[in-house]
């Protein structure tokens, strides 16, 4: 099975900035360690949601708007791709992601297998 672990940061920016530099480094190291975990096949951290551009096409015209889709407080901050035997393995990895204990949440979604 392949899963995408989507990392939602909640009010992440403020709680992130309240950390000391040392604590921030420790959290970044955790993200790095998860990336090195066997079964993790990819992943990325996204720039924050204020940098997002949303694109739609109506009647053949490309419409762009500033900001993320949808407009929610909880923004997608990054993701991992994981190959695992089952959902339990994916849940265990998700629970190790720092955002999960820092007011955010991880959404675990299976990929469609082709």
């Amino acid at each position: 099975m392949n899963y995408m672990l989507q990392i939602y940061s909640g009010d992440g920016v403020s709680s992130w900035e309240s950390l000391s530099e040392e604590e921030q480094n420790a959290v970044m190291a955790e993200y790095g360690a998860i990336f090195q975990t066997p079964g993790v096949t990819g992943g990325a951290q996204l720039q924050d949601a204020t940098t997002a551009t949303t694109v739609r096409v109506q009647d053949g015209r490309t419409l762009t708007t500033d900001g993320p889709f949808p407009e929610t407080k909880e923004a997608l901050g990054g993701y991992y791709l994981l190959e695992a035997d089952d959902l339990d393995t994916a849940i265990e990895l998700a629970a190790r992601i720092p955002a999960a204990r820092m007011g955010g949440a991880i959404e675990v979604r299976p990929l469609v297998e082709r």
Binding site: D86, L87, D88, P110
Partner: peptide, 14 residues
């Protein structure tokens, strides 16, 4: 089926 919920007795730590 689609999310891969396992059919097993959970391991000791779970």
């Amino acid at each position: 089926r689609r999310a891969g919920i396992p059919f097993r007795i959970p391991p000791a730590h779970l």
